[in-house]
Simulated assay, not measured.
Amino acid sequence: MREAWVLNGFIPSNQEEKQILQDITTELTFNPCEKSHKLRFHSWKEPARIRNPKVVVEKLTGGKMEREQQYWEDTPLELLRKKGVHTGLTAYIDEIEERLIPIIGSAE
């Protein structure tokens, strides 16, 4: 689930990332950032390995956690809501807004 949410927030930052995303999109026949819910966590062997969201995130980030972190910190909230409908991210954001923010706001 975490990797699907990371993919929901992915915005290529340079030409290399754009090319990697394009190559993955071509291989999958869909954009994994737009439809990360179509990826499968159990795919570790070729040729299905590219369908594993962990593999896709690894390819897009080069294994750099700080790059992953940028996806959820810098991506506009409305874009995360739009892309996260099928991964549960939109529901999670809504729940945070409905339950946690009022609690934090009342503590001030």
Rank of each mutant, 00 (worst) to 15 (best):
P53G: 06
K54H: 11
P47M: 08
K59H: 11
V56Q: 00
P76K: 04
P47W: 10
E66Q: 10
P47D: 01
E58S: 10
D74M: 08
R67K: 13
T61D: 11
W72K: 05
T61A: 06
P47L: 10
I50C: 10
V57P: 04
M65L: 14
G62C: 06
V57Y: 02
V57R: 02
D74S: 06
I50W: 11
G62F: 03
N52E: 08
V57K: 03
P53Y: 01
E66N: 10
Q69W: 12
R49L: 07
G63W: 06
A48W: 15
K59C: 13
T75E: 04
A48L: 14
R49Y: 03
L60S: 01
E66H: 10
P76G: 00
T75L: 02
M65Y: 15
Q69E: 15
D74V: 05
P53V: 07
N52M: 05
R49A: 05
T75Q: 07
E73L: 15
R51S: 08
D74H: 04
K59L: 14
M65A: 14
E46V: 10
Q69N: 12
I50N: 04
P76H: 03
Q69P: 08
Q69T: 14
Y71V: 04
K59V: 08
E46Y: 13
V56D: 09
A48T: 14
L60K: 04
L77T: 12
P76D: 00
M65W: 13
G63Y: 02
V55Y: 14
P47A: 13
W72G: 03
E58N: 09
K59S: 14
Q69H: 15
K64Y: 09
R49H: 11
T75S: 08
E58W: 03
Q69C: 14
P47N: 12
Q69K: 13
I50G: 02
E58C: 08
W72V: 13
L60P: 07
E73Q: 12
K64W: 07
T61G: 05
K54G: 12
E46C: 11
K64P: 02
R67P: 03
K54D: 07
V57E: 04
E58L: 03
M65Q: 12
R49W: 09
D74L: 13
A48N: 15
E68F: 03
W72Y: 15
